[in-house]
Nucleic acid binder design. Structure first.
Lengths: 248, 248
DNA sequence: CTTGACTATAACGCTGCGTGATGGTGTATA
DNA sequence: TATACACCATCACGCAGCGTTATAGTCAAG
């Protein structure tokens, strides 16, 4: 299929498809003769995933990080997205209730508290995040929190210092290819460091899952990106590749 | 209430509230001593409206045009918004169905057509628009279309020319105050022109409603704004004021 | 060989805020 | 009375995700 046909099929504009290609989000093959884009079925499936992730409120760069990761699992993504949509439905119900109450209040049939007027109208928190936490991260996060909690103040600050150093050194690599030897060697160091310092043994899967959380979970993203813009997305890719390679 | 309290109550950031004030969307009174913003209950109700309109996908400038119009009716807005939300719920159901089918297709239990993969994922058309059409405009639009259809080609182009001239002259006024005498005189001309040339007699209410449609309905907005950026929003205000004044 | 319907890239514009920077106010504490 | 500290204010700049021209090459039909 050519660009225009995909546009017609999906409702995404041609311009947008060009843009997605340019930013490395959806890069179809090309016709050898004239260089025109050629979308095959796998491209369409990927586009569908992209659109679902957009619905879940992720930025394009995050989506790219997620779907490019070798540890990306379509089935899991579908399941999380379903949970997100169910959340959304409930939110809409809340908003409908708010609406009906506001109507009644307008007629004087109901006395509405101020905070009631805004139920369901808060735009901030992303339920997809919550679900992803439950699926991938909370045990790991909780465990390490528990472990850290059991340390003395000195030990705590030592660990904190170690993490700081680790992320500083990782940040310097973030413009290189995540699959390169240098980066993968750093990943090996990271994996070992985590296993030594967090009271849990990370399986390779859990390590890759933690990488996914670096982009899906704002608690991580925001802290990590302080060491350098885009670091979390870079790490997600590099950790996924590391887990995949080592699993062999 | 001060700015921070409102922020806490609604989930809207302080920065955003400042911004809304600056662009004339939500301008609370001020404390005389220090110039601080003071939000009263009416402001909160308005903010609620603004948030509902945002959910419906309107831009801030459109929202401003809608709520500032004297013909703005809170109850009608609530009702339209409810319909919009119900639409959204149905769309989510469609997306959920698409999701489940995709899962099945992945397992090989179902053969999915390409276009089926994108059901519910099209972001473009705004259901609020459709509802607003049904409520305010379709009869008027249909009637005038019918009337114009009954004309000869010459007459048609004469009407088209007249409309073109009319909007050109209106566009020149668009930076003035919609309530000013000059603008209101032009509105009088517009009202008469419409009643003479569209085979329908516009009630003042219908005239104001048409103004609302100029901003809610992209069929109008896009055409009108060709004569000058923001013309549709300006006209919506001016027509609303005209109808209100003349009703007295 | 020209027309019209495609394709391509490149560059500028727009919206809705977030994020400081900088400075005035108000009240509590030393 | 000084000073700290939390809160308010107004700029000014930056960013994502495209829409929108502008400009140019490709291809089949007439």
């Amino acid at each position: 299929m050519n660009t225009k046909q995909v546009a017609g099929l999906t409702g995404i504009s041609v311009r947008t498809l060009h843009y997605y290609d340019k930013i490395g989000l959806l890069c179809p093959g090309r016709n050898d003769e004239n260089g025109y884009r050629q979308y095959v079925e796998a491209d369409l499936d990927l586009l569908q995933q992209i659109l679902f992730f957009k619905k879940c409120g992720f930025s394009l760069s995050k989506i790219r990080a997620l779907i490019k990761s070798p540890s990306f699992d379509r089935k899991q993504a579908f399941i999380l997205q379903r949970k997100y949509l169910q959340h959304e439905k409930r939110r809409i119900d809340t908003m409908l209730a708010t609406l009906d109450k506001s109507l009644k209040a307008m007629k004087g049939e109901y006395d509405m508290a101020q905070n009631e007027k805004f139920k369901g109208l808060d735009f901030d928190n992303n339920p997809y995040e919550d679900e992803a936490r439950r699926l991938w991260g909370d045990q790991a996060v909780d465990n390490s929190k528990k472990h850290i909690g059991s340390l003395s103040d000195e030990e705590k600050s030592a660990v904190a210092k170690g993490m700081d150093d680790l992320f500083c050194s990782l940040a310097k690599l973030r413009l290189q290819d995540p699959a390169s030897d240098a980066v993968q060697a750093a990943m090996d160091g990271m994996y070992r460091y985590f296993n030594q310092n967090f009271g849990v043994t990370y399986s390779l899967q859990a390590f890759a899952g933690l990488g996914q959380m670096y982009v899906t979970d704002s608690r991580f993203t925001e802290n990590i990106d302080k060491y350098g813009a885009g670091l979390s997305e870079f790490l997600a890719a590099a950790m996924g590749i590391y887990a995949k390679n080592k699993a062999k």
